[in-house]
Simulated assay, not measured.
Amino acid sequence: MSSSQYDVIVAGVGAMGSAACWHLAKRGLRVLGLERFDLGHAMGSSHGLTRIIRLAYFEGSHYVPIVKRAHQLWRETGDAAGLKLLHVTGSLDLAPEGLGPVESSLKSCIDHGLEHEVLDRDEISRRFPAFQLPEGHIGLWQADGGFVASEKAIYAHVGLAQSKGAEIRTGEPMLDWQPTADGGVTVKTERGTYSAGQLVITSGGWIEDAVPALKQRVRTVRQAIGWFTTRKPELFRQGVFPVFILSVEEGNFYGFPLYEHPGFKLGGPHFGREPMDPRDPDRTPSPNQLRLIRECLARYIPDAAGDPLTVKGCIYTVSPDEGFIIDAVPGVPQAVFASACSGHGFKFASAIGEILADLATEGRSAFDLSAFSLSRFDA
Rank of each mutant, 00 (worst) to 15 (best):
R283I: 02
H62T: 13
L29F: 04
E354V: 05
Q178C: 01
G183Q: 03
S342P: 04
G28R: 12
A25I: 10
P269M: 08
G145V: 00
T230L: 07
G44E: 12
P101N: 13
S150I: 02
M276S: 10
D358L: 10
H71L: 11
G263F: 07
G159N: 13
L160Q: 07
V243P: 04
S46W: 09
R294H: 04
C296Y: 00
I53K: 13
T170D: 03
F372H: 07
P173G: 11
S61I: 00
L94N: 03
I154P: 02
T89D: 04
G12W: 02
G146Q: 01
V329Y: 13
P179V: 08
W22K: 04
D358Q: 15
P233Y: 03
G78D: 04
G171A: 03
A20S: 14
I352W: 02
F236A: 01
S45N: 14
D122F: 13
E167S: 15
L34T: 11
F58W: 15
T202K: 05
L175W: 01
G251P: 02
G17D: 01
W177D: 02
V332E: 02
A371F: 14
P173A: 12
A305I: 06
A371R: 15
E234H: 10
Q334D: 04
C109M: 09
G113K: 08
F131Y: 14
S91T: 15
A305D: 03
L309Y: 10
I53P: 10
D209H: 14
T89I: 01
R69V: 11
G267M: 01
D182A: 11
I355S: 12
P96V: 00
L214V: 10
F147S: 04
G205A: 15
F367I: 12
H112F: 06
Y259T: 08
I315E: 04
D120A: 03
Q289H: 06
F377G: 06
L133M: 12
A304V: 11
A149N: 14
E250L: 07
G100F: 06
Q289T: 04
G100W: 00
Q198M: 14
R75V: 12
G14V: 03
K68L: 14
G267F: 00
